[in-house]
Write a protein that binds this DNA or RNA. Structure first.
Length: 727
RNA sequence: GCGCUCUUAGCUCAGUUGGUUAGAGCGUUCGCUUCACACGCGAAAGGCCAUAGGUUCGAAUCCUAUAGAGCGCACCA
């Protein structure tokens, strides 16, 4: 008996060592597998690209879940003989990373980005990003992820940057990327534009004011924007205002004195809301902007980029809007322009990353046009994004998320891709006088590059192929694209999944992946989201140190159906630590008792395994093979949560509880043939169980495998999958 | 407003295309240091599968409605 089996299983003493051996073997790399003869050179390929974690700190349990599921598929396919590639990488996460570092600098040194300057700030961010990167890589390895480290990528490295510039250029040339003055979500706190999906709405209780606007009564929740309002809009069919004609001018007294207002009739007005009459502020409201565009009205900025009122506000100029509102209301009241006030509940737009209250602004920005026909394709980007899923080329799991996907795409508007932050891909556009160059930097002096950077999703949108060396026509790209699977959280279906489909369909005229597997959120025992502020997050490193990565992986996978949130507790993980120990003891028992005493030494039983089996032993082996087939089907059909549960049940409640127990009398019996036959059976069952469990619990299964007399491969990791063994 | 999901044991959840007596983990109760394992073994209690209809030889599973919970998108003068 090997000494290690005399003690309970100790993941802490095992997992790190095993990972190191795997890594040294080079077998995470499909090319190396072919070279070492464990995979056939002409075997079909299987590829997944790791959703790149943001370099904003460290991984959480959601990442651990993602790794557990992806590694199951990868290890399974590798054992089935596929040329299997799982590409690791990290995401610079532009705005998220910059805002973390800026907050830290503000706290430590009370300085903002302009105090430091672009170069110094970038240096600080890069240092922080590098540290986060190292932590993350360490965590990925701790979880047992069999990623091919020789292919590690970063969204901001040179290969990926060139891919970004190339894609930008192609979209620009196709007329899909344009620059224009449009109303955007401006985050005064982050000092940048953000996209529609980075906006979170928060309910706010406030006051709704009715103001006298000449002969009209208008309603507003934001009196501080009303200084420049010189258009009053009503519905053309509204009988109450039939006396006023479209374009009619009216003299009236307003906040800072008499103005001339113009009546506009527009069908977008809801006659039932307020008084059915409203004034518009096109510079600070998307809806108002649209009305102004339709009627070719003037637009005027009222609030600056820091959320302060401009000189148009007269005596209120320079005030922050929060401070100004009350004072403006007082003045309106004093002038007799305030008709009435009502309590009002509405949603306020805030920035996801900084929490700043969004102030819509008209800005010169870069956009991707999703509704423009692509030259030579007869379709828009929106068409492509819908078509890829509707045609069945991409399958989403669970299927009902396809409806969410379509619903989301139908509401898609032009994508604002420029950001006024410094960390990220600089917009690849250079200007000189009237000239403009797009793509690569032009030679010669006097060129100035666009100051803005690109939305971080621009570079993650091309991740499935930028990681494979595109735009070079690499063999990786030819072999591994499209990916076979994309596995990610359902919460980024619109942000990321949809954008990858959009970018890939445009650039490569194909899909980025065949299947999208969406996992749910990992919540705490009370169903709350895990977060730093609540202090309820489990750190994967702590968990693996305490219970082992195998236990954590099982706890995350078993019973966790795609698309559904799960609650995670230490108790559940502890349960699977116990299971690991059970497996360890099953191995100990079989390895100890399966040997025949001959003279003073013990030997393993030999001979073809099935030849001397009793009918009962045939039955037991068949049952195990049936399980192998079921588990194989479950994995193929993405029911890994069921496969894991079945294996757990089999190993503990069949193999250990029943088969081992019924074998005990045989193994101590007088019939030598029966003893040998039973020993051979137990070894066969253990062998199969380890193979089947390996994708789920890679460490302990590999560790036991190394002591198996039936071992037919140096590593279990590249041993043959049982359902393909036919004896 | 549009759309999605969920409701199964005390708790957290499985239940794959409708098919014997609806399962697991944790928890609870009782009994066991039985020579693989107390990170264990044996046993037990606990469910009109949210409610009401319908389809079917047969429904936790399919359809309709209702109630409750959660979520996404849009609007928000």
């Amino acid at each position: 008996m090997l000494e290690k089996f005399l003690k309970p299983y100790d993941p802490a003493a095992t997992e790190g060592r095993i990972y190191e051996v795997w890594e040294k073997s080079g077998l995470f790399n499909p090319d190396e597998c072919v070279k070492q003869g464990v995979t056939k050179a002409d075997a079909p390929s299987y590829s997944i690209v790791l959703p790149p974690p943001n370099v904003t700190g460290r991984l959480h349990m959601g990442h651990a879940l993602m790794l557990a599921i992806e590694d199951v598929f990868i290890r399974y396919k590798r054992m089935r003989g596929f040329r299997t590639l799982w590409v690791p990488g990290t995401d610079h996460a532009a705005i998220a990373t910059q805002s973390v570092v800026e907050k830290q600098i503000k706290k430590d040194e009370n300085k903002n980005r302009h105090d430091l300057g672009r170069e110094e700030l970038l240096k600080r961010i890069e240092k922080f990003a590098a540290e986060s990167h190292d932590t993350i890589i360490n965590q990925l390895k701790t979880m047992g992820a069999s990623l091919d480290w020789s292919r590690e990528a970063f969204t901001l490295d040179e290969t990926r940057s060139r891919a970004v510039r190339t894609v930008f250029r192609r979209m620009y040339d196709a007329g899909l990327i344009y620059r224009g003055h449009r109303i955007v979500n401006w985050d005064p706190r982050g000092q940048t534009t953000i996209s529609d999906d980075e906006v979170v709405y928060e309910e706010e209780k406030t006051t709704f004011y009715y103001l006298q606007y000449g002969p009209f009564t208008i309603g507003t929740a934001r009196p501080e924007t009303k200084f420049g309002d010189k258009y009053v809009v009503v519905h053309p069919d509204d009988a109450r205002y039939a006396a006023y004609k479209d374009g009619q001018q009216i003299e009236l007294e307003w906040i800072n004195g008499p103005i001339t207002a113009t009546v506009i009739k527009d069908t977008s007005i809801d006659v039932a809301f307020g008084t059915g009459a409203m004034t518009i502020t096109p510079w600070h409201s998307a809806a108002d902007f649209d009305i102004a565009e339709r009627h070719e009205l003037d637009k005027e900025q009222i609030i600056d980029e820091y959320g302060k009122l401009l000189p148009i506000a007269g005596e209120f100029a320079g005030m922050k809007i929060g401070e100004a509102r009350g004072k403006i209301v007082e003045k309106l009241r004093a002038k007799g322009l305030l008709v009435k006030e009502e309590p009002y509940t509405h949603n306020v737009a805030t920035a996801e990353r900084t929490g700043g209250i969004i102030e819509p602004q008209i800005k010169l920005q870069w956009f991707i046009d999703v509704n423009r026909e692509i030259p030579g394709r007869g379709k828009t980007l929106k068409d492509l994004v819908i078509g890829a899923v509707r045609s069945g080329a991409i399958k989403i799991i669970p299927e009902y998320f396809e409806k969410t996907y379509f619903h989301w795409v139908e509401n898609l508007r032009d994508w604002c891709i420029s950001r006024q932050i410094w960390y990220g891909h600089r917009v690849p556009v250079w200007y000189k006088d009237e000239e403009i160059v797009v793509g690569e930097a032009p030679a010669g002096d006097g060129w100035a590059q666009d100051e803005d950077t690109l939305d971080t999703w621009f570079s993650s949108g091309i991740w499935t192929f930028s990681t494979l060396g595109w735009p070079e026509d690499t063999s990786d790209f030819k072999t591994f694209h499209p990916n076979d699977l994309l596995e990610t959280g359902y919460d980024i279906l619109p942000f990321w999944v949809m954008r990858m489909i959009l970018m890939t369909e445009f650039v490569l005229n194909t899909i980025p992946f065949k299947v999208v597997y969406l996992h749910g959120l990992v919540r705490d025992t009370q169903g709350r989201k895990m977060s730093k502020s609540l202090g309820n997050n489990l750190d994967p490193l702590d968990i693996t140190a305490k219970f082992g990565a195998d236990a954590a992986r099982m706890a995350l996978v078993v019973g966790n159906t795609p698309g559904t949130d799960m609650r995670m507790s230490e108790d559940k993980i502890k349960g699977y630590k116990h299971f690991a120990n059970k497996l360890w003891n099953v191995a100990r028992f079989i390895l100890e008792n399966a040997r025949e005493k001959k003279n003073d030494s013990k030997t393993w039983p030999s001979g073809p395994e099935r030849d001397h089996f009793s009918p009962r032993e045939h039955e037991l082996l068949n049952e195990c093979d049936t399980l192998a087939k079921e588990v194989t089907t479950d994995i193929e059909e993405f029911r890994v949560y069921l496969a894991a549960e079945k294996l757990y049940h089999y190993a503990w409640h069949e193999l250990a509880d029943k088969i081992l127990e019924e074998s005990k009398p045989i193994l101590v019996g007088v019939d030598a043939d029966a003893r040998a036959s039973r020993a051979r059976l137990l070894l066969a069952l253990l062998d199969r169980t380890l193979r089947l469990l390996h994708p789920f619990m890679p460490f302990i299964t590999e560790e036991i495998w190394q002591s198996l007399p039936t071992k037919d491969s140096q590593f279990l990791m590249v041993a043959t999958w049982p359902a393909t063994i036919h004896t």
